[in-house]
Design a protein around this nucleic acid. Structure first.
Lengths: 89, 89
DNA sequence: CATGACCGTGATACTAATACCGGTATAGTA
DNA sequence: TACTATACCGGTATTAGTATCACGGTCATG
């Protein structure tokens, strides 16, 4: 095995990352944010829709800068999908 | 042109990222940190030596977690190589 | 209706990231 | 010298990321 394909969990994590980025984008247009981050609108769309589950580090960093959200917050929310509703008290 | 090759600046940025990660690793062995981050030692070595300038986001995030350094600090130091010594006052 | 802007999907092309393998060099130890 | 461990380097194989293009859908505007 030279390079294992992405697992189901990788894809789910990518979906969470995309959802967070889309939420952070808010009302701003996709081409506008993509240009601010220095990537194409199609690529941003694929990231937001979770079709590119593991983008490059600096791509996410540029998006985080363009969207004004800290990288650590992004990583935390991706690692923790929805652990809530399971540990009430 | 379908996918532009990495520029010289991309490689320099990758070298800074690698230097930061190697510095953060300290005395810990390469295989130990790689295992903690969930990647192979070869990949970690390539990242540290700057031969893989743009690793995946979650790869860097896992390394940052394993090395206990915030992602934002990492991104900042990579973006700003050494702008000092040029703006004295 | 026509035009344009934005979003979505799919295909294509090319480079990059990751893992595995073998070889090499350098210390450290006996 | 030999042995061991670590790190560096090169090549190979496979998957993934990114850009571009093309088509379709929706909505606002003319």
């Amino acid at each position: 095995m030279v390079r294992a394909p992405l697992t189901r969990l990788d894809w789910q994590r990518g979906e969470r990352l995309g959802a967070l980025l889309r939420q952070a984008r808010g009302d701003r247009s996709m081409p506008e944010v993509a240009a601010a981050a220095g990537l194409s609108a199609e690529t941003l769309r694929k990231i937001e829709t979770g079709r590119v589950p593991t983008p490059a580090f600096f791509t996410v960093a540029a998006l985080a800068t363009a969207l004004d959200i800290p990288l650590d917050t992004l990583a935390e929310h991706c690692a923790e999908p929805a652990p809530v509703r399971q540990v009430p008290a």
